[in-house]
Write a protein that binds this DNA or RNA. Structure first.
Length: 480
RNA sequence: GGCCCUAUCGUCUAACGGUUAGGACGUAUCCUUCUCAAGGAUAAAAUCCGGGUCCGAUUCCCGGUAGGGUCACCA
């Protein structure tokens, strides 16, 4: 696909303003997949140039989230690398260096206005229903930049831009998208618009993966590449992820959850990755359940969509369930036991649970609803619950007696669900309906209207407990 | 308001300009089953609207409509 031999270098560059929501994760994932697919380099860079919005603990939260998801990087703030440092607040020297180049070229100038004055310009533009353009107010003789005022780019030429995006194809923008925007803020920190360009240059980034909210500022970036006379990386612009209502772009305010929340709910990291990869991309065949390795192999830019997709939790549940099915017995056991109290950590309970959950957090619900209590606690029930349709009570109780006798004849070793099934079905098939035998037995064992079949229940409970519960049922039935 | 992006079943999507418009999730029904779950099968369900190009448009072009993004000393 690539016609040059240059090593692919991508990056994920979050700002530490809070948790990682699923949209950010997808952006990280695509950059990661593209790098891995090409045996390239994936860099994690922290864009902490906005001290106001910075949230303490975000960086470690981001690192933790990515690690848990299995998205690993080759260079980053925690592990260093040849292009260190990887945190923008530690790279101020670089930004200053390039800012000075622009000043010398006469392509940057100090902004003499106060914040209030600029704000007034903006208000006025808004009232006139016009886009705000600082360049309409460009000062005649700006003062020398001493670092206390914002430094702005001086546009050489106001023009329209057209460019190619690897995922989007041909894009364009009118001259309104271009402005003398701020390169360096009055606090000495660069803006994203400037900083990311310098960092990408110095780190040798070949492909920028980002979401489509950056399309409209791309002309600004292009004007900086031009002013600096540097080659730009390739752009790979991702479609938006829409919220469940299908309207707004999924954002933190609109219910975009912390990706860690999903992991805490017992979604498998690989399922999360699989699901997120498929919002905005597909391999071009009909595969839908894929491992990380399969995603890496299949990933291509051609398969990236241009229209937005919704975050559909039902599909996530299904994909997660498919991934649960692919787990080894040992992995499945470890996951399930994590959620179970000691007394329920029984090997034989595993298939019963795994068939009934789409994520491991569902086990918590099952426990809360008491759906698993009967495994370690004799159920409470009344006679009427044991009755099956119109079957007379004495028929039910004599059937139960028969069941009890035959089960008693089984040795403890032969007390398997297959043998139990043979016995129960033997009796059931002779009855008016199978239900008049199977229902009371199942209910005697579980005390639930809905439960797994009586054969597996009996096996798990064991011979002694099974017989004791059937006995209890018989005496309940004989109560007046 | 300016600029930009987008538009196929409810949802995620597939379809060199020629297909009975395919798949998946979800839904419904049936089978399997005492119940639940799992499994199997079947069904309903879509090309936003209007022009144009073409022998032929989901596909290309234009317009409309709708949705989204953006217009910060945020990223």
């Amino acid at each position: 696909m690539e016609n040059n031999n240059k090593k692919i270098v991508t990056r994920f560059a979050p700002s530490p303003t809070g948790f990682m929501h699923v949209g950010s994760v997808r952006t990280a994932l695509y950059a990661y997949l593209w790098a891995r697919k090409n045996n390239g380099t994936f860099i994690l860079r922290i864009e902490d140039t906005d001290k106001e919005r910075e949230v303490a603990g975000s960086i470690s939260h981001i690192i933790k989230s990515l690690k848990l998801l299995g998205i690993d990087w080759d260079e980053g703030p925690d592990i260093g690398g040849p292009n260190a440092p990887y945190t923008q607040s530690e790279r101020l020297g670089s930004y200053l260096k390039y800012a000075k180049i622009l000043i010398e070229k006469g392509l940057a100038y100090a902004d003499p206005y106060t914040e209030e004055e600029v704000e007034a310009f903006r208000k006025k533009a808004e009232e006139e229903k016009k886009p705000f353009l600082y360049r309409d107010h460009r000062p005649e003789n700006p003062p020398l930049w001493d670092g206390t005022k914002p430094l702005r780019l001086k546009l050489k030429e106001i023009k329209s831009y057209e460019w190619e995006d690897l995922a989007r194809g041909h894009l364009k923008a009118g001259p309104e998208a271009l402005d003398d925007f701020i390169l360096i803020k009055s606090d000495g920190f660069p803006t994203y618009n400037f900083a990311h360009i310098i960092d990408d240059l110095e780190m040798g980034i070949t492909h920028i993966v980002r979401a489509d909210e950056f399309i409209s500022s791309t002309p600004k970036f292009l004007s900086v590449y031009e002013a600096l006379e540097i080659k730009r990386p390739e752009f790979i612009t991702l479609p938006p992820i829409m919220g469940p209502d299908g309207k707004k772009k999924l954002g933190k305010r609109d219910g975009a959850k912390d990706v860690l929340e999903y992991l805490k709910d017992g979604y498998l990291p690989e399922a999360m990755i699989n699901f997120l990869a498929f919002i905005g991309w597909n391999p071009g065949d009909e595969r839908e359940v894929m491992t990380k390795e399969e995603l890496i192999n299949a990933f291509n830019i051609k398969g990236i969509h241009i229209s937005g997709g919704k975050f559909n939790e039902e599909k996530l549940d299904w994909i997660n369930k498919e991934h649960i099915k692919k787990l080894s017995q040992e992995e499945l056991k470890n996951h399930i036991f994590e959620w179970l109290p000691k007394e329920l950590q029984i090997e034989k309970i595993i298939p019963i649970i795994s068939e009934r959950i789409s994520k491991f957090g569902d086990i918590k619900d099952m426990l809360e609803k008491g759906e698993l209590d009967f495994f370690y606690k004799e159920p409470e029930y009344t006679k009427d619950k044991l009755v099956y349709k119109n079957t007379p009570i004495d028929v039910i109780s004599s059937n139960l007696q028969l069941v009890e006798n035959l089960l008693n004849d089984l040795s403890k070793l032969d007390f398997t669900k297959e043998n139990i099934k043979t016995i129960l079905m033997g009796i059931a098939d002779k009855a008016e309906s199978r239900g008049e035998v199977l229902h009371p037995v199942r209910f005697a064992l579980s005390g639930l209207d809905k439960s797994p079949d009586p054969f597996i229940l009996a096996e798990i409970l064991g011979k002694e407990e099974t017989i004791s519960r059937i006995n209890k049922a018989i005496s309940r039935l004989r109560e007046l």
